[in-house]
Computed example of a mutant assay.
Amino acid sequence: MTTPADVYDVRDPELPGRLLVVERDEWVPLLRALDERDFALPVSACPGWSVRDVLAHCSSALVRVVEGRFEEGVFSPEANERDIAERADWSNARIVDELERGMTEAGPAIARAGGVLDQIALGEWVHAGDVRVALQAPGAYAGRGLPEALTLLTAVTRARGHVPLHADLDDVDEPLKLGEASGERPPGRFIGDAATLVRLYAGREVDGGAGYELAGVEAAELNIFGG
């Protein structure tokens, strides 16, 4: 596997866009091949939402970025529900079309934003994993975009001054240093596979069969997406 950047001293403004394009090329063909009934499957990581709802949320968020529409309260739970409701009479194919457009065009806008929108690209990649879990499709929180996702996760946790963590990954060549090593708190330690690390940072349920070690930090402290 390609090794993600271990040190992220200078922001790479093109990284979020690269992650979106890599995931687009993997995810959109999967979605276009689905049976219509698959869009109604529940997504356990997003209680109350179906596959269609998650896709509508993802597509609307990216198009807002592309079009620069950031009114007050945007991306709040209430705004997310409104975005989904506004697409209630759309066909599934139209939602996937909008998602493809957003994943194609959002990169430059995220790059210009100076870092404040970088986490959106990471969130889209995580939601792609959520949908894969619902569909019982391979590659959830892993796949071809994993090196870019890990590098972006490193960048986001450092930029936010998140709890420090050293991660020794079974399936990545070099260890990751996540969060801000301020010296006030010794880094926690994670040993396990990359997909499990992503699940922890995304606040997702960890696969019961995943063997991992976490020391010096609670799992809840790693969650970068909130409750």
Score class of each variant (00 low, 15 high):
Leu197Ile: 13
Val116Met: 08
Gly211Asp: 14
Ser44Arg: 08
Val217Pro: 00
Ala149Lys: 05
Asp207Glu: 14
Val43Ile: 03
Asp89Tyr: 07
Leu153Phe: 12
Ile191Ala: 14
Glu184Val: 07
Val172Arg: 13
Ala195Gln: 13
Gly114Ala: 05
Val43Arg: 00
Leu214Lys: 07
Arg160Gln: 15
Phe39Trp: 06
Arg101Tyr: 13
Leu146Thr: 13
Val10Cys: 05
Ala33Val: 06
Leu15Ala: 10
Gly145Ile: 11
Ala113Asp: 13
Ala109Ile: 05
Asp118Leu: 04
Ala88Gly: 06
Asp97Pro: 11
Glu105Tyr: 09
Glu26Asp: 15
Ala155His: 08
His57Tyr: 02
Cys46Phe: 00
Pro16Met: 02
Pro16His: 05
Val51Leu: 09
Trp90Ala: 12
Ala220His: 12
Phe75Met: 13
Lys177Met: 06
Val74Ala: 14
Leu222Val: 07
Val21Lys: 15
Asp35Pro: 01
Gly145Glu: 13
Arg144Glu: 15
Phe75Leu: 13
Asn92Met: 05
Ala149Pro: 04
Gly227Val: 10
Val10Tyr: 10
Ala128Tyr: 05
Arg160Asp: 13
Glu14Ile: 00
Glu148Asn: 12
Leu153Pro: 06
Ile224Arg: 06
Ile191Glu: 14
Val206Met: 10
Pro164Met: 11
Val65Leu: 04
Met103Gly: 06
Lys177Cys: 04
Ser76Lys: 03
Ala137Arg: 11
Arg185Met: 14
Ala45Gly: 11
Arg101Val: 11
Pro147Met: 14
Asp130Gly: 01
Val43Asp: 01
Asp97Val: 11
Ala128His: 14
Ala40Lys: 00
Ala61Tyr: 00
Gly102Tyr: 09
Leu178Thr: 02
Glu180Gln: 15
Leu169Val: 12
Gly183Pro: 06
Ala128Glu: 14
Leu200Gln: 09
Leu214Phe: 06
Cys46Asp: 01
Val126Lys: 02
Gly216His: 03
Ser60Met: 03
Ala155Phe: 03
Ala5Ser: 14
Arg144Tyr: 04
Thr151Gln: 12
Leu55Gln: 10
Asp173Tyr: 04
Arg11Ser: 10
Asp25Val: 05
Arg144Leu: 14
Leu117Pro: 05
Glu218Ile: 01
Ser50Val: 03
Gly227Met: 10
Asp83Glu: 15
His57Asp: 13
Asp53Lys: 00
Gly208His: 08
Leu135Asp: 04
Gly115Lys: 03
Arg69Gln: 11
Gly114Pro: 06
Ala111Trp: 02
Glu81Gly: 03
Leu34Met: 12
